[in-house]
Design a protein around this nucleic acid. Sequence first.
RNA 1: GCGCUCGUAGCUCAGCUGGAUAGAGCAUCAGACUACGAAUCUGAGGGCCGGGAGUUCGAAUCUCUCCGAGCGCGCCA
Length: 580
Amino acid sequence: MISVAAELSATLGRAFAAEGLAAHFGQVTLSDRPDLCQFQCNGALAAAKAAKANPRDIAGRIAARLKEDARFSRIEIAGPGFINMDLTDAALAGFLEDRGEAPPNGKTALIDFGGYNIAKPLHVGHLRSSIIGDCLQRLYRANGWRVISDVHVGDWGLQMGQLISEIGLREIAPIYFDAAFDGPYPEVSPVTMEDLEEIYPAASAACKTDPARLELARRATVDLQDGRPGYRALWQHFVDVSQVGLSRETQSLGVSFNYWRGESSVHDLVAPMLEDLKARGFADISEGALVMPVAEDGDKKPMPPLMLVKSEGGLLYGTTDLATIIERVRDFDPDLILYVVDQRQHLHFEQVFRAARKAELTGKAVLEHAGFGTMNGPDGKPFKTRAGGVMKLYDLIAMATVQANSRLAEQGLGGDYAAEEKAEIARQVGLAAIKFADLSNHRITDYIFDLERFSKFEGKTGPYLQYAAVRIQSILRKAEAEGHDVGIPAIHSPEERALALQLLSQADVMIAAEAKRAPNILCDYAFELARKFSRFYGEHHIMSETDLALRGQRLGTCARTLAVLREILALLGIEVPERM
RNA sequence: GCGCUCGUAGCUCAGCUGGAUAGAGCAUCAGACUACGAAUCUGAGGGCCGGGAGUUCGAAUCUCUCCGAGCGCGCCA
């Protein structure tokens, strides 16, 4: 897949260079005024500013150098010095023939998302991290990156101590608390995932109201982290039962990870890291705790230090985050570590990143927090169940499936399909509604979750895009059944030209989405592609076309559009049913 | 108090490394099927881009300031 804009940028860049100007001024983009031209270059204005020259004059000299390039059908200077360009239909069709994949770029990105916790079922708070992170990993891979995704399970903090102490208090499994017992411990977990889901909130609530109870949890946490055998054994059971439950949920979401490492996996790195930081004078005791100052010269705002060890000896998530950077640099040597985590943790990441850079722990990696806003209910507050509790992901997906089912029924679709296929379509449509809605909003802003709106087949929704793809599949199926040949796309009309330009901007869009870590750019593109196809489809009847060559070309356009649409939807994690 | 992220059409949102007439979807109104899936398409109306000031040939975009919202701010994660 090549980028037409990049090709033209190179051409214009050479022209700028030949005029003694910097080549980067030659940057060409798809026109934002399609009524005026297909491609534009605004570099003459910037170049004129730098060279203190007349922009129209520079634009004219560049344009003169392009006159001999047969790919252009029109080059025009407009306004203060915009260079407007159109390509010939032959040139556009020629670009359309290339369909390669992005070659490996030799870089590694580690994407940290999910952030699930032991003993807690996934809830809507995990939804955005999962969906956005998964989209980014698919996109980065498609763009040639080597991607390592890691869910970074929360399995090492105070919650573990809360669970352990609660189980101790309830005397569910005394053997793990018997200091005299020297094993081996039972192989079967004394608690199920369901037990943990009940025990954790109870323990958490008790700790909130009772300082003595909290102290007990803290002690248990420290003992666990210090390696008390019974606690470790019990903890291992938590991890095992939770992982079964969690991976079942990510499967139903269609999200996957290369690694299911947890905070605990870096525990052995923590002590040496702390020694090292102390030895090099980066960390000091303050009010009984070990902290690392991360304020920098020139800070306009106060920057609290990163806390590494609590006064009672417990570790914090900043400690494990820092150690995890060491682990990741050691194991994968990434060029980029991307944290797809709630925007509310931004300050925390700022502290961790500063600490990592200050102590030179990052290797060649750039650290970046790709934060996201919250998913809110109709009242603008974080999404809750009707009862006011936290909405579980499982229930949310079920709601979306029900909604999709009734929409499909409303439209009288799939009436004669087998129940199994209908259920599968509803599942795919429901998930598409959720994912597209989530991804099409700008990552950093909050958005209001409105299932009814997201599930509509009209407008900018996941189901609409699935419908668009299914409709093209239907045409191609019919063409195949009638023995029609699928040819190579050609351009004979404004609708075909607009569609071709849209198809050709795929690479640029994928690069832009990568650079900004912004899935909504992909969503806009997919929607616009579907719309341009609909326009083409409305103007040109395909199956009844008697000119066989023309019919073949149009079928080729259909096939090509479908391929690109499916690719983009796949990046979004959205499946396309065979039929609806 | 300090900081972060925002404030764009009636509603939900794009656009923000400065560029031409600020765009979608929904809703409203007016059109288009004896044809491939009308779940669609075409067109119209609808905007002091929160207010003010500054930088610039040019500001929704950059800077400052004020107003408003959400969220953070060393022993939770």
